[in-house]
């Protein structure tokens, strides 16, 4: 199994690349392990299979998602539909896994990814069952807070 530190660094570096390139937003790690996004939240999720399998999620409040969508689309708040806000979170999960994948390709081998999906609710968490490693990174994105979680396990187990 690949070291968690390797994945954690790659996840954060990938997030910085995605947010700075596509949304002109800065991502800074926030030392709040176990932090649960409060209130109404969105959870973007994308699964992957290969030598390792698992899923990557992006969880943030609806307001944070709206800020991301505004920056991503270069739109005004009032111009955005709810679908566009939801879609933006799915795209972030998609691009984040793409950036992570390119950073861990040499050690993790080939990975096939799914289509991203997004759910809304409160106190959202994801699970891959027993035997899965978890890397969770709470970050500040400009003035907002989000949580990136990577769950993975060796596919041969």
């Amino acid at each position: 199994m690949i070291g968690q530190e390797t994945f954690a660094d790659a996840l954060l570096d990938g997030a910085k690349e995605v947010f700075e390139t596509m949304m002109f937003m800065t991502v800074e790690p926030c030392d709040e392990a176990g932090h649960v996004i409060g209130g109404s939240a969105l959870l973007g999720s994308i699964t992957f299979t290969g030598d390792i399998e698992g899923c990557l999620t992006v969880c943030c409040s609806y307001d944070c998602a709206k800020t991301i969508a505004v920056n991503m689309l270069g739109a005004e708040d009032e111009e955005l539909s709810e679908d566009e806000v939801v879609d933006a979170v799915g795209e972030v999960a998609n691009m984040l896994l793409g950036s992570l994948k390119s950073r861990i390709a040499e050690t993790a081998g080939e990975i096939q990814v799914s289509i991203p999906s997004v759910v809304s609710g409160t106190e959202l968490v994801n699970s891959l069952g027993e035997g899965a490693a978890e890397i969770s990174q709470v970050v500040n994105i400009d003035e907002e807070t989000a949580r990136f979680t990577l769950l993975y396990r060796d596919a041969k187990v």
Partner: peptide
């Protein structure tokens, strides 16, 4: 695409694509 592996890029160009941009993009 978010896919950045050379095999994917070369493969899709062999299939007939003329260019390739990796997400995230500027």
């Amino acid at each position: 695409s978010t896919e950045s592996a050379d095999e994917v890029i070369d493969g899709v160009k062999a299939d007939g694509a003329n260019g390739y941009v990796t997400k995230p993009f500027t």
